[in-house]
Amino acid sequence: MGISVKNISKSYDKVMALKNISFEVKPGELFGLIGPDGAGKTTLFRILTTLLIANEGEATVAGYNVIKEYKSIRNHVGYMPGRFSLYQDLTVEENLNFFATIFGTTIAENYDLIKEIYVQIEPFKDRRAGKLSGGMKQKLALSCALIHKPKVLFLDEPTTGVDPVSRKEFWEMLKRLQKKGITILVSTPYMDEAALCDRIALIQDGNILEIDTPEVIKNSFPKRLFKVKAAETFKLIQDLGSYEQTHSAYPFGEYIHFTSNNVDFNAKDLVQYLQANGHTDIEVNETAPTIEDTFMELSK
């Protein structure tokens, strides 16, 4: 009773936002949709939460069809949209109470589920939601999305624009919710968060590039990957760009991640090339690919 998506397509005027995509989220799974702005993530969320109708295809959420049984879905899912969409003029407690009432429940009834998150904002329960800081708004939005004890939780880019410390805390929170049996579909543009999901779908331009566990996706990287470093980074990027054996060269932290178009590539050749171009402090070492490497290779 997770999520099932079959051949879903959606277009807005001339733009195809989703192109015939299919995937399954198992019950209790923490599933990540990983892709940049404009990939189609929000469109998919809106279809699955019954706020938008697909042009083609079928989908079920918690066993309910998104079209025929949309009312049941609305009772059984929690949705935290990318944009803060609570009532700014209501206080923290009023917002939570409002959402509980709408779903025919009370704060007390499901307090256990939200307790861990809500206690962090409870000291500010009389403050208007519009006056909260970004991190507190996020916690309130999550509390409101959980107050009716949903079977499936949809989180659309909950960590965009959030600093690394708060992002880490947020993911720890998701892991604990998952342990309570909630199926979670979460989207993010941060590739490092993909590693925290059970399975992920890489999505770009309305297409799913790959679906699997983060481990398998990392290991499916089709080439040998090298990390390259030299004293002058900018010159290094330019020189790698014009090297005849370069397949890809992307800045990656303090290194440039490099792959070759030559199956018999020898790192010594590259070192020589860089030396000939006046580089110093050259390092070329083979390295393990990350999700981000795979994403870039697939979307190249």
Binding site: T160, G161, M191, Q204
Partner: peptide
């Protein structure tokens, strides 16, 4: 101010190449 938030990984890197170029 956070020029690359939400930008895809390849474009994000192209953006930084533009930054490097200007610094250069």
């Amino acid at each position: 101010d956070e020029p690359t938030g939400g930008v895809d990984p390849i474009t994000r890197r192209q953006f930084w190449e533009m930054i490097y170029r200007e610094a250069h």
